[in-house]
């Protein structure tokens, strides 16, 4: 089930982030960490879901792809938690790692995300140094991580 290390380069990063500025900053810092993977940005949940699950909503189209989801919790049209729930309950894409990247540092919210199957939870710090650091570390993490695909 596990993909071999060389596949790390083929991991596609799906970034669901409504704030364009944040998206840009995240992208810059990931690139700075030397990660060159494709990043597909979405500004709202509806568009992201239709990409992730395909037109028929089954997720078939992405079954064989290696995806990493960067997810903001506060989206204008739906809550990130419900996106997380959908991803983790879809048999085709539930093994894709989901990194929650949000401004919310509410304890219960964090617990809830892990309960629902989130793999990493990162709070966006207002302090840019910390923010950039966190993203760069995430980038390093992405460059070495094994992402499974579903057969």
């Amino acid at each position: 089930m596990m993909s071999d290390p060389s596949k790390a380069a083929h991991v596609t990063i799906v970034m669901i982030e409504d704030d364009e500025g944040h998206a840009r900053l995240i992208e810059r810092n990931i690139r700075r960490a030397g990660v060159t993977n494709e990043i597909i940005p979405f500004q709202n949940g509806t568009a992201a879901l239709s990409y992730l699950f395909g037109a028929d909503g089954s997720g078939d189209t992405n079954a064989r792809r290696a995806l990493l989801v960067l997810l903001d919790l506060n989206l204008p049209d739906m809550s990130g938690v419900s996106i997380l729930e959908k991803i983790k309950s879809n048999p085709n894409i539930r093994r894709s790692p989901v990194v929650i990247l949000t401004t919310t540092d509410d304890e219960r919210e964090i617990q809830r995300c892990y309960d629902l199957g989130a793999n990493v939870y990162i709070t966006k710090p207002v302090n840019y140094e910390s923010f950039a650091n966190a993203i760069r570390q995430l980038g390093l993490f992405v460059s070495v991580m094994q992402v499974p695909t579903t057969d």
């Binding site: 944040h22 900053l25 401004t103 919310t104 509410d106 966006k124 207002v126 840019y128 140094e129």
Partner: peptide, 21 residues
Amino acid sequence: AYIVSHDLRAPLVNIMGFTSE
């Protein structure tokens, strides 16, 4: 409070971030 803190924080992150950029 939750909403306000998140929504006000988001642009702050941008301002700080792009200032550093």
